[in-house]
Design a binder for these strands. Structure first.
Length: 327
DNA sequence: GCGTCCAGGTCTACC
DNA sequence: GGTAGACCTGGACGC
């Protein structure tokens, strides 16, 4: 893989800061650095001693974000510093505060989910282990869609390598608070590169075609923002996402701010064992059956159930006496 | 060392 | 509308 060919490093020296009071229960560490290792903004972000340094582009503005907790699970307070190249207008700072609130899931009320989960033989363990973990809405569609495409037809190790190469070759690094964090590329940049160049540099294979077409669609056409997708009905948002290049049933469930029940051949095995007590004979053929059972069992809470179970696999394996390791 | 298989899906041609 | 086959790449596996 080719790294650091054209990564631009941008120093961010202007700061504005604020604090948030998320809806309790809220566990800051579990929310920004969850056990399965899903990134808050980018896989290159840093989490040390309870503080997160991350970076992203929001409406063409590169920002660095430093966050830490000053409260506790039942009385949560999060301090946030936002770093930018130049001083931001008041309207922009208000917008960014909303973006970070959404990304933290700060206003998410977990009480309904927890009430259901405590009566469920699987989820009662997960919500106990991960009490206060919120799930937020990412600031933009492009990184989520590229991630979904890179997860397709590849072992996780290779997906991670493709993702790292893509960010290092075409992203932008934010330098702030004595840290450097690489942020995801924006569609405007990817739309102008050749598919063959992307395939060669990042070894993404046939996925290069989907990624460049996706970038063109998002940068040249009016596609709903993540916030607008959140305001649509789940069905409308899903329909819009499936219209994107390289995005099908599974990927739409990953990207949608409404969530879904994204069962692939990997999760078909995990959830197959949890639901039916044994490994499916054929993981690929079990996808539809496992997905239907998850939707039947957890209904409107399917996404949160998926999220909590995937984050809690080692504990669930032990507590339920089911070997959830892949075979 | 070499050939074969297949992986945390989606698209397209064909019926 | 339903479905088989193709699709990049690289690691695992058998020989």
């Amino acid at each position: 893989m080719e790294y650091n060919i054209s990564l631009v490093v941008t120093p961010l020296s202007h700061i504005f800061e604020f604090s948030l009071k998320p809806t309790a229960p809220f566990d800051f560490s579990l929310t920004v650095k969850n056990p399965a290792g899903w990134s808050f903004f980018t896989p290159f972000e840093i989490f040390e001693n309870g503080t997160l340094w991350s970076a992203t582009k929001v409406s063409s503005t590169l920002i660095g974000v430093k966050m830490w907790s000053e409260g506790n699970i039942s009385n949560p307070v999060v301090s946030v510093q936002v770093f930018s190249i130049e001083e931001l207008a008041i309207s922009h700072t208000k917008f960014l505060i909303d973006v970070i609130k959404e990304a933290l899931g700060a206003e998410q009320d977990l009480s309904g989910f927890y009430e259901m989960a405590r009566k469920d033989d699987i989820l009662k363990h997960a919500v106990d282990d991960l009490y206060g973990m919120h799930d937020g809405i990412p600031p933009s569609v492009f990184p989520e869609a590229v991630l979904a495409i890179l997860l397709q037809m590849a072992p996780l190790k290779r997906s991670n390598e493709m993702m790292a190469s893509f960010i290092q070759n075409y992203g932008e690094a934010a330098e702030f608070d004595d840290r450097q964090v690489s942020a995801w590329p924006v569609p405007e940049r990817i739309s102008s590169i050749e598919e063959s160049e992307l395939a060669r540099k990042c070894k993404v294979g046939y996925r290069a075609k989907h990624i460049v077409k996706l970038a063109k669609k998002l940068s040249e056409e009016k596609f709903p923002s993540m916030q607008q997708l959140a305001e649509m009905s789940p069905g409308e948002a899903r329909k819009a996402l499936i219209g994107l290049p390289g995005i099908g049933d599974y990927s739409a469930d990953i990207i949608s701010p409404h969530g879904g029940f994204p069962i692939d051949v990997w999760s078909a095995e995990v959830f197959g064992k949890l639901f039916f007590g044994k490994k499916p004979e054929n993981n690929r053929e079990a996808v539809e059956k496992v997905k239907a059972e998850g939707m039947r069992r957890w209904g409107e809470w399917s996404w949160m159930a998926f999220f909590y179970v995937v984050q809690d696999l080692p504990n669930l394996s032990r507590k339920m006496g089911v070997d959830l390791r892949l075979t």
